[in-house]
Amino acid sequence: MILSIDPGNEYSAYSLLNKDLKPVKFGKVLNYELLKILEDYLFLDGIDYFAIEMIGHYGTGMPAGKTVFDTCVWIGRFTELYYHHTGKDPTYIMRKDEKINLCGNMKAKDSNIRQALIDRFGAVGTKKNPGWFYGVSKDVWAAIAVGVTFHDLYLEGQGYEKEVN
């Protein structure tokens, strides 16, 4: 399983992707709640990989505000929890890498990333006929994009699909 996070200053989105990259658990919760969720997953030994979107600087000349730095603190807290349980650091995925990997374009927006995921894996679906992404909304799309990009950049071609139950 791949656990991936789109971090925020107060709330973060997460997804747990199975070997086929289908989201089996996901949500957007308060960061303190996510710490507990992560701890529960780590104690279950069901996480093979952990990826977090990392804050980056893109030379826009815009100053960073308090929310950016608060998000950095939470990335550190999630990292520390993972390291404490596994002795490993998570993999940090830059937003620009998600855009290039999924859309082939640095100018891609959230809606382009959502559409690229739907094009690749299938429709969202309905309550009567749930699709690949049924129930996914808002920032959870970004969390899934982190996990899929991690897979594509670090695992594809290494037999991950065959090794993980």
Score class of each variant (00 low, 15 high):
Ser137Lys: 15
Lys25His: 10
Thr60Pro: 05
Glu163Trp: 09
Arg77Met: 15
Cys72Leu: 15
Asp97Arg: 12
Lys88Gln: 13
Tyr49Trp: 06
Glu156Cys: 07
Lys162Ala: 15
Ile52Asp: 04
Ala116Thr: 05
Leu30Cys: 02
Trp141Asn: 01
Thr91Arg: 10
Ala143Gly: 08
Ala123Asp: 08
Pro7Ala: 03
Ile118Lys: 02
Ile118Phe: 07
Pro90Glu: 06
Ile52Gly: 04
Gly159Lys: 07
Lys99Met: 08
Phe150Met: 02
Gln158Val: 04
Lys127Met: 15
Arg95Ala: 14
Ala51Ile: 07
Thr126Gln: 01
Leu102Glu: 00
Gly56Pro: 01
Ala123Asn: 05
His151Thr: 03
Ser4Gln: 02
Lys107Pro: 01
Gly122Lys: 15
Leu16His: 11
Ile113Trp: 05
Ile47Gly: 02
Asn105Gly: 00
Phe26His: 06
Asp139Met: 04
Arg114Trp: 02
Tyr14Met: 08
Pro7Thr: 02
Pro63Asp: 01
Tyr14Val: 07
Lys19Thr: 01
Asp48Tyr: 11
Arg114Cys: 05
Ala143Glu: 06
Lys25Met: 06
Gly61Glu: 14
Val140Phe: 07
Ile5Arg: 03
Leu102Met: 06
Tyr58Phe: 11
Met62Trp: 02
Glu53Lys: 03
Val146Asp: 03
Tyr160Ala: 09
Arg77His: 09
Ile113Val: 15
Thr126His: 05
Asn105His: 12
Ile144Glu: 06
Pro23Ile: 09
Ile100Ser: 00
Asn165Gln: 11
Tyr49Ala: 02
Phe50Cys: 13
